[in-house]
Design a protein around this nucleic acid. Structure first.
Lengths: 221, 221
DNA sequence: CACAATGTACGAACTAGTGAGTTAGTCATA
DNA sequence: TATGACTAACTCACTAGTTCGTACATTGTG
């Protein structure tokens, strides 16, 4: 998330378009994540900024476009995290585990992002579809998975028939569910999946699961 | 007048409280699942029924309680499906796979339920918390998992340190994500996780993953 | 000055919820 | 079985309060 404390302005410039836009995005991210798109109020978002509602319309055009801008930035953050991943020097097993843990850590650290994605799915990804920016971004994680998978399969460590997108879905499933469904799961089963005391346990469980799947003998029917 | 306590009016059902309530619940389920709690309009729900908005307030008290009633019924459906599960005669590996497939099938067959759960998580499970009915229901699936797990661990087929709630979370993760995040995943990675042609593939993948995890050798660090 | 950036005030449309009255079905009793 | 009291089920019209969006005025800055 871009921080509000922007470039140290020597003289306190009152007018700063970039800062105003960033502040609106910060607040809107929090509000949309908190109560959803329909639940969020443009007036409330404006009130939580140091500017006015007029600026939201001036810079973003409307509530819908504001939400799209929020999504674009949120996806940008995870893409950046994935890009910073360096696993080329690791063996395939360790590399996959490291990648899974990156997803695990990112999802845990960004519950607002998880909520936004849940919300966007309720809206059948219409904002992603409407966004040029989001339409054509790939996923660095996917590229990494492809490379690790290939290397692992060539060396015979991994079973041959595993697809990169599928593996990404598997890893995301676990990490996403743990954060997204924390509340219903906790209420129904009395267990907080995001309890800090259980963090290492679930982090290991994810890695174990993925590695077990990748290295399992699948001959038995 | 042979007064049967069943109001068995074959078709002349002008006034039928049970029917009216059920119809409201049906429509409300669809609407809440479609556009979320805040996005749903009581007037719209009423318009989609053959009764009036006043009846919603008459029977349910308000929008919030209507949503809770919708959730209660939706959770009841999956509980029933779980209750119908008969895996006692199977060996642990087959039993776990069968259970996982039941979850897989139910989630796929009830996307509205998945959406409602997503929505309820955005609301931090406040309706579940407010519901007496939902507060004290257990999960038949969990009981089944406990029994299978114990048997599998005693016979040495499964690794010893796996917990039933954790395994349930793992299975649910995969099944839930596939349906809930279908749209964003599809938009970003160009793959429809609920494509009928891929159904068997993902169904097998789930079983393979769970069994691999349960039977993996976890000695290597 | 020109124009980007910002603030104020307002309104049309919407939205959850209600007040008040009506009709259909039940039941006790003569 | 006819009648009238009673109540659950239902209809209609209304309102108080929101909510998104905008017209218009103003201010700071290069």
């Amino acid at each position: 998330m871009t921080s509000v404390e922007e470039p140290a302005r020597p003289n306190g410039r009152i007018r700063d378009a970039a800062r105003t836009k960033a502040e609106i995005l910060d607040v809107a991210t929090r509000e949309f994540a908190r109560v959803g798109f329909a639940g969020a109020r443009v007036d409330d978002i404006a009130a939580l900024t140091s500017t006015t509602k007029r600026m939201i319309y001036y810079y973003f055009g409307g509530k819908e476009q504001l939400f799209t801008a929020v999504l674009e930035r949120a996806y940008g953050v995870i893409r950046e995290a994935e890009q910073g991943l360096d696993v080329e020097h690791l063996d395939p097993v360790a590399a996959i585990r490291r990648l899974a843990e990156l997803t695990f850590d990112h999802h845990e650290a960004h519950p607002d992002f998880i909520r936004l994605v849940s919300i966007e799915n309720i809206h059948e990804a219409e904002h992603i579809a409407a966004s040029e920016k989001l339409g054509r971004i790939g996923s660095p994680a996917l590229d990494v998975i492809r490379r690790i998978l290939k290397s692992g399969q060539e060396s015979g460590l991994f079973t041959a028939d595993v697809d990169a997108v599928d593996l990404h879905a598997m890893i995301s499933s676990f990490c996403f569910f743990r954060v997204a469904n924390r509340h219903t799961f906790g209420a129904l089963f009395g267990r907080d999946l995001v309890d800090p005391a259980q963090r290492e346990h679930y982090r290991n469980m994810l890695g174990d699961m993925v590695i077990a799947y990748l290295t399992a003998d699948r001959t038995a029917g």
